[in-house]
């Protein structure tokens, strides 16, 4: 419907057009268009079940969209997660999905997978390039751990990190694939205000590295502080897109979150009906007890 078109000043990193995802008869995402430009932080909000994570999964190839296509820097992406990551889109998960029994450093090293080439033969024969590549990977991973403030815990198992640090590690792991676009799925869920502020600063720092960010979040204050642009998804459809303050005061958004007032307050007749139904329900349960 109403979509504010962005000024074509900066180059487009992500261009999703007409993305539709149907599971049988249920349409989880319907014809969503979204663009993210370089140096931009875009927020994606919406009530629970609006299809935000499904949309993310369509972008990253975990789901094959029923219709529509996703392009990264002008090339259409094949719906395979590893190819999407290789192209330059990295993501985190809503329910943290770290490699729990690997160390913090190993987690980040796994994130380097697409940016390193050393194959099995190189590993088995310890070919000359192997040690160099491994050391370079390690150095880069440690750099990222410094960046996210986890360097001191490099040798801890990921499962033993506190919750907030697990979120940070997911981001570090995603950054290890040297993405041009980072998708964050509820990065501050379950964080206290201080941790949320730290996350904000981290995301700004990521943007300053030249990485565009698309973030799903429920914390509206966080979105207001962070995002240049916000898109609202309701029941699988994008209803509004624009600057944060415009979106916040949009009637349809308020309606989607809080509901529209009833046409005519419930009258006495309805109230009496409800009461009678409740009384009956109670008497039947008591009857069952006897």
């Amino acid at each position: 419907m109403t979509t504010t078109t962005t000024a074509p000043t900066s180059t487009t990193v992500l261009d999703a057009s007409g993305v539709t995802m149907r599971f049988g008869g249920l349409t989880a995402v319907r014809d969503v268009n979204l663009t993210v430009n370089t140096g931009e932080i875009v927020g994606l909000i919406g009530p629970n079940g609006a299809g935000k994570t499904t949309f993310f999964n369509c972008l990253t190839g975990l789901y094959v969209p029923t219709e529509g296509k996703v392009a990264y820097k002008g090339t259409v992406l094949p719906p395979k997660p590893h190819l999407v990551t290789q192209a330059g889109i990295a993501r985190t998960f809503q329910n943290i999905r770290l490699f729990a029994n690997m160390t913090v450093l190993e987690n980040v090293l796994v994130g380097r997978h697409t940016r390193t080439k050393e194959g099995l033969w190189s590993a088995l024969l310890r070919l000359p390039g192997f040690k160099k590549a491994e050391d370079a990977s390690r150095a880069r991973a440690m750099e990222l751990l410094e960046f996210t403030g986890l360097a001191a815990k490099a040798d801890h198992l990921a499962r033993n990190l506190p919750y907030g640090e697990q979120r940070k590690l997911e981001i570090a792991r995603a950054l290890a694939s040297e993405p041009g676009l980072l998708l964050l799925d509820e990065p501050t869920a379950g964080m206290n205000p201080q941790e949320t502020r730290a996350a904000e600063e981290l995301i700004f720092a990521i943007r300053d590295k030249g990485i565009a960010v698309l973030v799903i979040e429920h914390d509206i204050r966080f979105i207001m502080n962070l995002c240049d642009r916000v898109a609202v998804l309701v029941q699988g459809e994008k209803i509004v897109e624009g600057p944060a303050d415009v979106v916040q005061s949009d009637e349809r958004v308020i309606a989607a979150y809080l509901g529209t007032p009833f046409e005519g307050a419930p009258g006495e007749a309805e109230a009496a009906e409800v009461e009678a139904a409740e009384a009956e329900a109670q008497s039947t349960t008591e009857g069952d007890d006897k």
Partner: peptide, 23 residues
């Protein structure tokens, strides 16, 4: 103890997350 071995362990731990890391 190589990139390949780490990828294997990552697949063992969480295959979906591993593919999302480009494996």
């Amino acid at each position: 103890e190589s990139r390949i071995g780490r990828a294997w362990v990552a697949i063992r731990e969480d295959e979906t997350a591993a593919t999302a890391m480009g494996i």
